[in-house]
Amino acid sequence: MSSIDNTLPERQTSAGVEHTESLITLTPRQLLHRRAFSHWGLIIGTLTVIALVLLAVVGPLVLPFDAYAQELAGRLQPPVWAGGDWAHPLGTDHLGRDYLARLLIGARISLTVGFFAATLGCIIGVTLGVCAGYFGGRIDQAVSYLLTCQLALPQILLAMALVFLIGPSIYVVIGVIGVLQWSYFLVVTRSAVMRIRELDYIASAKTIGSSTRSIFWHEVLPNLRSQIIVIFTIEMGVAILSEAALSFLGVGIQSPTPSWGLMISEGRQSMFFNPWLTILPGIALFLLVMGVNLMGDGMRDVLTPEGRH
């Protein structure tokens, strides 16, 4: 072939040589950035979550309060705006422990449990979904049956029973929530993979000689990235609430470890006269889950808009 000149049409060969004017179209990453930064929900949600993560990680290290130090003489102090003093800005609980410190440690618990439980659910759900969607046939039928069973289980009751039998600890809580929470991952992954399976670049990968495992890792999963991230954030919100519910019922995180759900439960008795004991962790839960949900919805709008392919 003759040399390529970018500006003038090539006339010698009738096979033609490609050249175009400058491209306006952006790379996928640039498109993404543009969409992301103009989506209000995503920004608010992400900022909220980041703020809470920072508070959870840095807060306890910086503040001088101990979440576990009980001081019976100073119990049930109100927060500063209700007559308390700055020694305990958010008041103290029924054993005199500083509430702000407990809220911050509770943030750690919620985030940790939420993240790892969602991860566990993600691993299970995506693995099953990819296998079911890619191979179809008997495997798909078996997985669908598994899914039907899982959906039919009464989740909270089962979680309670499992935690009660095995014994409550944070690992058990993570494991139980994760193992009961993979259905959404499975459904979305499976239908996405069923669609991708038909695309020609999968056939092309096969003809190149890629092994099935290689196809999963390099062709299928990267194209599921967006969906998985979206579902992950949403499921994380659900996991956080599930942990709060279990702790509230007494079959999740055990005292003295502060979990927001547990704090709400502990404050129930004094609810009428010391309402902040339940309101504060309630607000914290609300903020975190709302932030996570906004983030997830925002990601969904940005990463997987309609008609992407």
């Binding site: 989740q155 909270i156 929530i177 009961l180 929470q181 959404y184 949403i234 499921e235 919100g237 659900v238 996991a239 609430l241 599930s242 709060a244 519910a245 709400i264 339940t278 309101i279 309630g282 607000i283 839960l285 609300f286 889950v289 709302m290 949900n293 906004l294 919805d297």
Partner: peptide, 16 residues
């Protein structure tokens, strides 16, 4: 898991 994953107004806030 137990709650509709798309609900914005979480049970916690409703509870509060």
């Amino acid at each position: 898991m137990m709650f509709c994953p798309l609900k914005r107004w979480t049970p916690a806030s409703a509870g509060a």
